[in-house]
């Protein structure tokens, strides 16, 4: 089984998000970039399947050379080889087209993404790739089991789940619970240096939308503290002031 895992890099979860150039660009100064946490879950699942004898894992990333460290980390976690599409990942439509363009010649059985990236939170790349390749997809999966050429997937729905079965190939977006994130060991880190990393050129994709401006959420006023033995006051404030109950 050939598995492709799509990796994006995002600011570390503890990052303070600020902007530059008159609030038109994300300020990367001092930002530590990491593999998107959901992509790490997807990769860990793929490596788990490969270690269980079910195929090998390729990771693909759309980004410039600066993200090679992130790709090496993915290789250290256990991917067999990596592909980097040498371009700024402009938006989800651009990224999905690059990945689909690479994948269409490769006949992958399973394409995994994270359910969303924690920077732009679009939940788009996986479904776009599937549509471009003409194959099924599950945008948000809580559980993935592969048995031969059959996949059993728990899809997240409001207040529960659907248990689905489908023949490969398929694109699946991994959510929490799909796999425990793997931490690279020393052997993995050493081995990652010599694993193949192929750099390919991007294809042209039309621009359909652009981000014009960023802003920080409006600050809240100072907290109103209520004495613990006077919860009735809280109930009253929620009712008559905040008007939420």
């Amino acid at each position: 089984m050939k598995i492709l895992v799509c990796i994006s890099q995002v600011p570390d979860t503890t990052s303070k998000i600020t902007f530059t150039d008159n609030n038109t660009a994300f300020n990367t100064a001092g930002i530590q970039f990491i593999i998107n946490p959901y992509d790490e879950i997807a990769l860990s699942k793929a490596v788990e399947l490969a270690e269980g004898g079910q195929g090998n894992v390729t990771v693909i990333h759309v980004g410039e050379a600066a993200s090679d460290a992130t790709i090496r980390k993915a290789l250290a976690i256990g991917a067999y080889e990596a592909v980097r599409v040498d371009a700024v990942p402009r938006d989800a439509w651009f990224v999905a087209n690059q990945i689909a363009n690479y994948a269409k010649e490769q006949s992958f059985d399973l394409i995994l993404t994270g359910r969303e990236s924690i920077d732009y939170n679009g939940v788009q790349v996986g479904s776009y790739i599937a549509e471009l390749l003409g194959i099924p997809s599950i945008a948000i999966a809580k559980k993935i089991e592969i048995n031969g050429t059959e996949a059993t997937i728990d899809r997240e729905i409001e207040g529960g789940k659907e248990v689905l079965s489908v023949s490969l190939p398929i694109v699946i977006g991994a959510a929490e619970g799909v796999a425990e994130p793997k931490i690279p060991n020393m052997r993995g880190i050493m081995g990652a240096r010599s694993k193949p990393l192929q750099v390919i050129s991007p294809i042209d994709v039309p621009v359909l939308s652009t981000i014009k401006q960023y802003e920080s959420p409006a600050p809240r006023g100072a907290v109103k503290l209520i004495e613990p033995d006077n919860v009735a006051q809280l109930v009253e404030l929620l009712h008559s002031e905040a008007k939420v109950i």
């Binding site: 600011p11 902007f19 924690i118 732009y120 939170n121 960023y214």
Partner: peptide
């Protein structure tokens, strides 16, 4: 729309 997991808000423009 919210970006960076609600740490910021982006204005997205389209003429499509």
């Amino acid at each position: 729309k919210s970006v960076f997991s609600s740490k910021a808000i982006a204005t997205v423009e389209t003429s499509a």
